[in-house]
Design a protein around this nucleic acid. Sequence first.
DNA 1: TGCGTTTGACTTTCTTTGACCTTTATATTA
DNA 2: TAATATAAAGGTCAAAGAAAGTCAAACGCA
Lengths: 155, 155
Amino acid sequence: MSNISDIIEEFLINTLGDDNYLDISRNDLANYFNVAPSQINYVLSTRFNYERGFMTESKRGGGGYITIMRTDTKNSTWLNGIIDRLNEDIDYRTACYIIGSAVERKVLTSSEAEIIKTALSPNALGNPFKLENHLRAQILQRILLKHNAKTKKKE
Amino acid sequence: MSNISDIIEEFLINTLGDDNYLDISRNDLANYFNVAPSQINYVLSTRFNYERGFMTESKRGGGGYITIMRTDTKNSTWLNGIIDRLNEDIDYRTACYIIGSAVERKVLTSSEAEIIKTALSPNALGNPFKLENHLRAQILQRILLKHNAKTKKKE
DNA sequence: TGCGTTTGACTTTCTTTGACCTTTATATTA
DNA sequence: TAATATAAAGGTCAAAGAAAGTCAAACGCA
């Protein structure tokens, strides 16, 4: 558990707080967490990307910096962007990021999000060359199982 | 008596205690019991499957883990029956019928049901011979589109 | 001998690191 | 002062590392 990327992500989210943007120094941050500077870029591109509702800008050279910004906070705009983006394929991790952001934006409830993540999980989709009916059964089975597990957890 | 799989099962059950889920590291566990890592998968698939009231999830890569969850469908004969039935393929109409019953029985809210129906619709699943990522994108796009349409109507 | 168990080789996914590149600011020099 | 060099950022990309997954062969006991 606890890979450093998740920790850095959490740190940045906390530092952001309710603000809409944040300036950081890549080197300082890398130094603070004792990682390669390019690890910061990894965190930014996987966690602070468009799908998750962020954008970044930067400047090189002396006194350089990176700015992390929340994108256009209007939900409908964001959603439309995401929907467009989905004309291309998407992996599970990114899908989860999108769904997570949708919950933060209150576009989805967390129980709806759980259902969707389940529907999209590698476990549910499995072998991509199965027939439609089979695939559907697999998905529904997975969803029902997980939903049950979830309600049990809440009790 | 006392093959290593049974011992690992017992260990996990004990560690679980009264909790409904448990995170473990496959490698650590395999190491602790001096077995091949894949033995853990064997234990999970034979002992912590849905017939026994469990399901699992996992993440690979640095900081990866396996989550074992209780599903405990035992107290719902109805749900259990459905889940068993889903070992066979199922067409869209039947799926909708099942989901409808689940709503009646208050296993699902109607908004959850809508999402699931969307995920399972012929439109979302489409051509069954596409690659997993493509299929997933299709499903999520459909879900988001529909969710969007619904909220728009409500506003 | 057959079925459940155990092992290991190979695969996939996600993270971390490092070597090399580009841009910008500042200091130096003709 | 204009041109040039140097240092100080940040960017990119591919390889290595760190998990977990799959599958089939070998094993072993009732």
